[in-house]
């Protein structure tokens, strides 16, 4: 029985440890610290808060279809938006499908940007989908994704 109790306690401890980091990420403005592990679905839920994002042509995600080097994959997200104080893009989130941490970057924009575009370079561990989730000022979420073939993995 002792052994059983031990495993029960271990189970609850890991469950708490698993819940706590996701809780801290639910708040959009909190700064990330330490090596993190998060799968794609929990990351998507943390961003949208349970809402289902809509696929849209307004979001343009530009990545190479075949990346020779996974350590450097250029990603550009452009959103068709007037960027006025009443209607603008609030945030652009870039996610990957299979890295140990699915979140790459959250970008919080303001009307002072003038154009809703963000571009960076990310690391990919293998062939997977890259997803852009866009939050508009009226609270709706748009999504676009593209698969990237990686010939040499770039993590670690």
């Amino acid at each position: 029985m002792q052994r059983r109790d031990f495993f029960k306690k271990l189970g609850t401890a890991t469950a708490i440890a698993a819940v706590v980091p996701t809780m801290s990420f639910a708040a959009g403005d909190s700064k990330p610290t330490g090596p993190n592990k998060m799968d794609y679905q929990t990351a998507l839920n943390a961003i949208t808060g349970g809402k289902t994002p809509v696929k849209s042509d307004k979001v343009k995600l530009k990545t190479p279809e075949i990346a020779e080097n996974g350590a450097v994959v250029p990603v550009t997200v452009t959103v068709d938006s007037p960027m006025t104080p009443s209607n603008y893009v609030k945030a652009i989130h870039i996610l990957n499908g299979k890295n140990s941490n699915a979140r790459c970057i959250d970008v919080f924009l303001t009307p002072a940007n003038g154009k809703a575009m963000f571009s960076t370079r990310i690391k990919l561990g293998g062939t997977q989908n890259v997803t852009a989730v866009v939050e508009l000022s009226d609270g709706t979420f748009l999504i676009a994704s593209q698969s990237v073939k990686v010939t040499i993995g770039g993590c670690g």
């Binding site: 959009g28 993190n36 890295n99 970057i105 919080f108 940007n113 003038g114 990919l124």
Partner: peptide
């Protein structure tokens, strides 16, 4: 005045680049 702020995780490349537009 703050234009843009970003939360970043480790999946970004070595020597990262951040590109935005600004008025």
């Amino acid at each position: 005045k703050e234009i843009t702020h970003m939360n970043v995780w480790e999946s970004l490349s070595v020597n990262p680049v951040f590109t935005i537009y600004m008025k």
